[in-house]
Design a protein around this nucleic acid. Structure first.
Lengths: 137, 137
DNA sequence: TGTAAACCTGTGAGCTGGACACAGGTCAAG
DNA sequence: CTTGACCTGTGTCCAGCTCACAGGTTTACA
């Protein structure tokens, strides 16, 4: 199976498959005559797993570690539990950051509604941004 | 003023100041004798603006556009209003994505609580992830 | 049989917003 | 005069792909 066929089967772009191949998550065989990469059913299975893990927030490096354990016949589950703990904290952090940013942006847009446009002057580049930054908490 | 002094004054790392300089947001003069970059009070003002804009979710490219308008004496405000509209949509999208991911992760961790570790077998790499992906909505 | 267009491939580079490595310059203490 | 601490600019790297490109392959049609 070539890259495009595998990609379409699992609903990702060929470039994505190439990327996972490049970093060693997939290990297709190289055809002798044309140099094309040939993906096995096992690669197909691995890709399916990669996509599942990705949807749970695992990084490709996480997935690499999981594969490493599994390839040695050990249970990757303890690793998985440990890794998702870290990712969960990161995601929570990102969530809070995004939440705060969103609120800030809404307040800014709101407060800019009845303010005029102004030309830059002195050390004020855009009074909307400059003034908003100075606003009381 | 040299890079470190400017950086400390506004609470960022020298590397950050170098980065903004490299991409053209700051334009210090090069000292003739030692090649060091010399930042003016105007650079200081620009950096302050950059940090304010950054805190409102503007990208460095956005800020470049804003500076471009302002440097030509035009009002950057219409640009600013247009740009924050885009960024607001993006932030909302990222917020929703992060929210969904966070929920998914919580559900996963919850449901894994009473499941055992297993060794990989057949085409199951990690049953926690493989099975969770197959779970009903 | 030829051939031209459409499609496919692998590889290399680019994106954001900095962080880090490194070789060399500068300056005060001794 | 030298040692060491500190500072500098420049180049490279990070995730997770996406895009550009040159060339190979297959198909449509004459």
């Amino acid at each position: 199976m070539q890259v495009r066929q595998l990609a379409e089967m699992l609903g990702v772009s060929p470039d994505t498959v190439r990327y996972y191949t490049r970093i060693g998550l997939l290990e297709p065989k190289k055809s002798i005559d044309n140099g094309y990469k040939f993906y096995s059913p096992n690669d197909q299975n691995r890709l399916r797993f990669i996509l599942s893990a990705r949807d749970l927030g695992f990084s490709v490096d996480d997935i690499k570690q999981i594969f490493h354990k599994a390839d040695e016949g050990e249970s990757p589950c303890p690793t998985v539990r440990r890794l998702i703990d870290n990712r969960l904290h990161e995601t929570e952090q990102r969530f809070q950051d995004t939440l705060r940013l969103r609120a800030r942006m809404h307040v800014a847009v709101e407060s800019w509604g009845d303010k005029p446009d102004k030309r830059p002057s002195g050390n004020v580049i855009c009074h909307l941004i400059d003034d908003f930054n100075k606003m009381p908490e």
